[in-house]
Amino acid sequence: MNAGGGMDGIDRGPGAGEIPLLTVEDLTVGFGGGEDGGMSIPLQGVSLRVPRATRMSLVGESGSGKSLTASAVLGLLPEGARVLRGSIRLEGEELIGADERRMRRLRGGRIAIMFQNPRASLNPVHTVGGQIAEVIRVHSGAGRRESRNRAVDLLDQMGIPDARRRASDYVHQYSGGMAQRAVLAMALSCRPDLLIADEPTTGLDATLQQQVLDLVIEQVKARGASLLLITHDIAIARQTCEQIAVMYAGRVMESGPTEEVTAAAANPYTAALLKAFVTVDRGRMYAIPGTVPTLSGPLAECPFADRCEMVGPECRERVPELRRIGGREVACVKA
């Protein structure tokens, strides 16, 4: 546990200048108990890197730990969760153990977040424009009028028609799609380097989903920011992001350039997920047998072993490490 310690950036990584924007290494998070054994370990050594100005997706089913990873990065782990091991660095600055004031400044500033339910992210008793202006005022020190104008500009850039008038509306007067645009405006208002979008379109219909994702990509690109898109939908990930990381049972199973990974998955789980999600078979759908394992202790074998078509005895010997293979990293002994 390097809590508190690594603030001075000892661990700057090998090649200078090539420090990724976000580095997560061996992140292990546990819930509850400890000694008495009532512990669950939903993150079992997650490692991933988000380079600057890159869109990366974090794909997984429920219980894979994808949202928890994002919470850990934001320093917003739920009650009872503890980081047992690992490190999270934003351009070399260790975030695990960083004090709450520092994290708060990062959250509104260099890291922005966009949640699934836009209505829950906006305060119902303040106008939409007022909230965004407030964020701008606090973070940039601009005056009231100036902040207000910038808020309206942002809403306009997000494609909200008649932005000046709509800025004075409350969130309940916005449709689902419009509300998610307003949340994006708020997230981008303090010019973040990293936008974390946690299932930003899951509650929306497909036709809207596409519009919102297009907007997110366009805005992130235009601002030179990075995107960490958390989604259960590998088809969305494929369409939106250059990089992909596939999670299962609290571990990254495979990560790399999206095109490479989706064209020929090296990890059988990625392959299964692609088949289940992307391939439509007539009269029959691809199904992965079995269920996701419960993470009540440290893993002893590949977590996908029970459901894998290619499983062999070597899969049961230990937890496969992420290995670099060409442009990607794969956690599978058979890869």
């Binding site: 089913e61 429920s62 259960h232 939908d233 590998i234 299964a272 997920l273 289940a276 999600f277 009269g283 029959r284 759908m285 691809y286 199904a287 992965i288 047998p289 269920t291 996701v292 459901r307």
Partner: peptide, 14 residues
């Protein structure tokens, strides 16, 4: 339902 479970239910129904 999760993606990996969805197919099981669809196939069962068919």
């Amino acid at each position: 339902l999760d993606v990996s479970i969805r197919g099981q239910i669809v196939n069962l129904l068919v």
